[in-house]
Amino acid sequence: MIDVWTWLTSGANWVGTDGIWHRLVQHLEYSASSLAIAALIAIPLGLWIGHTGRGRVVAVSLANGIRSIPSLGLLFIVLLILAPHIHSGDAFLIPSIVVLVVLAIPPILAGAYAGVEQVDPAARDAGRGMGLTAWQVLWRIEVPCALPLMFGGFRSAALQVVATATIAATVSVGGLGRFLIDGLAYRDYSMMAGGALLVGLLAISVDAVLAGVQRLVVSPGLRS
């Protein structure tokens, strides 16, 4: 454990392109872009399913099916399919992002449709009674009421993505996973354990930040 502490506190390990800061920023970049893409796909779809009640069975079974795909296997398949068509260094980054997006979609989707679905029908009817259009019902009643569950889904996706982004290192991409893969190849276990610790701390921090955002955004009436 002392070796890990030495590794973590040595200033030389924090700077440069192999340094902890750079790897941390890369890790956040990959995680944030994957989560953003996944949210752009899953939230509109989830809201539509929750609002209309259509396609629920298909979406649920599809999302659950996707959950069972092993990320590492998917990474290599996507890489072998995509890499010959991309000639820049992104040939390795893009497959990694694809895998993380696939990982993040099910929890975000589930949070969105479950959130809208569980909105009190009386609130919905009241809205309609006041003459709101379907869009207004969605944006002013269903989405605000669904936010706690939507955040739940998003936070669980964020945790999984931050933890899984380490696999990008197996295909030469950066991020904190480099410390795990390189540490193993160099037989430098303090580097490996230090890297793993950093991934854990990053995941907690990201969740804490999202919890803070949730507290600010969700209506106080829904917090109980």
């Binding site: 072998l80 000639h87 040939a91 390795f92 030469s172």
Partner: peptide, 19 residues
């Protein structure tokens, strides 16, 4: 330097495709 694999598919792909 790009860390790939021990002369495996990854290294061959990267060299072939110009990464």
């Amino acid at each position: 330097f790009r860390p790939l694999d021990a002369a495996g598919a990854l290294t061959v792909t990267a060299l072939k495709n110009g990464q």
